[in-house]
């Protein structure tokens, strides 16, 4: 699957949320861009400590929702005025009032699709393999440990300097992970 002995990046382990919060601030201020943090539960404001920009997901959801609503409305208009016009309840063919519920529901449905699929896409999920799991201790990221990973592909990455930076932030262990 991947060539052996190629490094993926540096993994640092922390024991508390407070430590990783400040560690993220240090990594952010050192100018790294291709890195991530892994915590067993959501840590308030960690996005700010990491310097993350707002996610583009809301725009995807908005676009999907508007498309869904428009599509739902167009479908009903086409069906009831062109494809199969039939008088229902003595009302005009184009009874937009009756179209509202389906328009609304399709707007919601497509928004939900946009949110879920957009989230998966932005997170590049599903992924069948991730190098970080080559480090056995990384399993504790879903239990009681906090991790920061900095990837080799980061322009600022330097095995010595990156290790020194992570060690200076109070990591209990720092190791290089194979790709």
């Amino acid at each position: 699957m991947s060539k052996p002995n190629q490094p993926f990046g540096m993994l640092a382990e922390y024991t508390t949320a407070r430590e990783i919060y400040h560690a993220c601030e240090s990594v952010r201020d050192a100018g790294y861009v291709r890195w991530d943090s892994h915590t067993p539960f959501p840590v308030h404001n960690l996005d700010k400590a990491m310097g993350l920009r707002p996610s583009p997901l809301p725009w995807i959801v908005f676009a999907a929702g508007i498309s869904g609503a428009s599509l739902g409305f167009l479908l009903q208009w086409w069906v009831s005025t062109i494809a199969y016009p039939i008088v229902v309840h003595g009302k005009p063919y184009f009874s937009y009032q009756a179209f509202v519920p389906v328009t609304f529901e399709l707007g919601i449905l497509f928004s939900a699709f946009g949110a879920v699929l957009g989230m998966l896409g932005l997170n590049r999920l599903p992924q069948w393999y991730h190098s970080l799991f080559n480090a056995p201790k990384f399993a504790r990221a879903t239990d009681d440990r906090f991790f920061i990973s900095i990837e080799v592909s980061d322009p600022n990455y330097d095995p010595e300097k990156t290790r020194a930076l992570l060690e200076s932030t109070g990591a209990v262990s720092v190791e290089e992970v194979e790709d």
């Binding site: 508390t16 949320a17 407070r18 990783i20 919060y21 400040h22 840590v43 308030h44 404001n45």
Partner: peptide, 8 residues
Amino acid sequence: MGSHATKP
């Protein structure tokens, strides 16, 4: 919860 100091 929050990892920073609470306000006075």
